[in-house]
Amino acid sequence: MEWQPDILGEGFEACTFQAAGPDGVERTATLVRHVPDPAEGDAGSRQPERAVLFLHGWSDYFFNEELAAFWAGQGFAFFALDMHNHGRSLRPGTHGGYVADLDNYDAEITAAIGIIGSLRPDGSAPLPLTLMGHSTGGLIAALWASRHPGQAAQLVLDSPWLEMHGSPAVRRAARTMVEPLARFWPESVIRLPERAFYWRSISSAAEGEWALDDNYRPPHAFPVRAGWLSAVLTGHARVARGLNIDVPILVLISGASANGMFWKESMRRTDAVLDVNTIALRALSLGRTVTLERIDGALHDVFLSAPPVRADAYARLARWIRAYVLGDGGTEGPSTAPP
């Protein structure tokens, strides 16, 4: 496996690989790793004792260097996976963001974890792994963990897309309408109103602070295709039936949602994508040990929120790590927010 300099620049490397799904199709995925600078103190000089693998959301890619630095500061080797048809793994002639079955991600997630395990310099056992996912990546991570018990030691979900807006009745109605299209014309585009409110709140090209590559994360997202939407709705139905994940799970969401066809100032401090109250209820279907943290003022990705808000989110994540990973019961320790 050959590592190359990453688009994020110094401190990051990437390797592209192929993985065959259950349908036998080879798909391209890209694993990104954070390589701390030895001059950065403990995070750069000590050998990590654990690893974390981050899965991005739909129509997205990994770019949050601050998140990587946080995990490195907690003693983790940080990795992120740009899944097929996303970000660094986009290829000409493919539909951005498209997947016909969320199970098709299993092979590349499993392969990425295998690569992470092979990096141990002394050939010893792989590092204990925490799986982290945002939005649709949170749904994918939860489904993967339920199908691969014993592979991940913990699960961290950042605003996971576990259910449609409103209620399961909305999902069932949507599935009834989408299924005929998904069966016969899976790649057909479903025309939906285009909104770029969330992008507006995070992109430095608009009113946010994050430098985004619009080729990897388009302002209006990729076109919604029938097969993809059917795959997501099927995943939601699985979550609703209960996943019985047997490892500790942390779910972080905003304190409130803001929806609608027109921009509102409240979208600067709320989740403008998901119904957080619905997600909070559905999180109880994930497993037996679920911690829910509601972050006042947070955006859809809580770790892209305004600095004071994401500092709160990082502090809550660090407390959970101390309690459920390090095992000290979440007692107060040194400052854990990234610089």
Rank of each mutant, 00 (worst) to 15 (best):
S230G: 10
A173P: 00
L229R: 02
E207N: 14
L233D: 01
L250A: 09
A256E: 10
D246V: 04
E209Q: 15
S167Y: 10
V189Q: 04
I249V: 14
S167P: 08
I202M: 10
W185H: 12
R172W: 14
G166F: 12
N215S: 13
D213Q: 10
L181Q: 01
M164K: 04
E187S: 10
G166S: 09
F197C: 04
L233Q: 02
A153E: 07
V247H: 02
R200V: 05
H236I: 07
I249E: 02
L212M: 08
A240Y: 06
E209A: 15
R195I: 12
P219A: 09
R147M: 08
R217K: 10
L250K: 05
A196F: 12
L243I: 06
P149S: 01
S204V: 07
A142Q: 03
R147G: 04
A226N: 02
L229I: 07
L192T: 10
L155R: 03
I190T: 01
R183L: 14
A169F: 14
V251E: 01
G166M: 08
F197V: 09
A221G: 09
M164N: 06
A211Q: 09
T176P: 01
I190L: 13
H165E: 13
E163G: 04
L192G: 00
A145R: 06
H236K: 07
L192H: 03
M164Q: 11
V251N: 03
L155Y: 05
L212Y: 08
I202V: 15
P193I: 11
Y216H: 15
R241L: 11
Q154E: 13
R172G: 09
F184N: 02
T176F: 15
E187D: 14
E209D: 15
R172Q: 14
D158V: 15
V156E: 01
R171I: 05
I249R: 03
R183F: 11
H148L: 06
P168K: 07
A221F: 12
L250P: 03
D213Y: 10
P193N: 05
P219V: 10
A258V: 13
G166I: 10
R195F: 13
S201N: 06
V170G: 00
A169N: 05
G227R: 00
A142W: 06
R172V: 07
A226R: 00
R175F: 11
M177F: 15
A182W: 00
I190G: 00
L233T: 00
V170R: 00
S201P: 07
V156G: 03
Y216T: 08
A258Q: 12
L143N: 02
V251P: 01
V156F: 11
T234Y: 08
R241W: 06
R217Y: 07
R147W: 08
P168W: 10
S204F: 06
M177V: 15
P186C: 02
H148P: 02
G208L: 10
P223A: 06
R217V: 13
R172L: 14
P186E: 01
A182K: 00
I245A: 02
R225L: 10
V224T: 11
S203H: 11
D214Y: 09
V170H: 01
T176E: 02
S254E: 04
H165N: 13
E194H: 13
N215H: 14
L212T: 03
S188G: 11
R241T: 11
I202N: 05
A226V: 04
V224P: 00
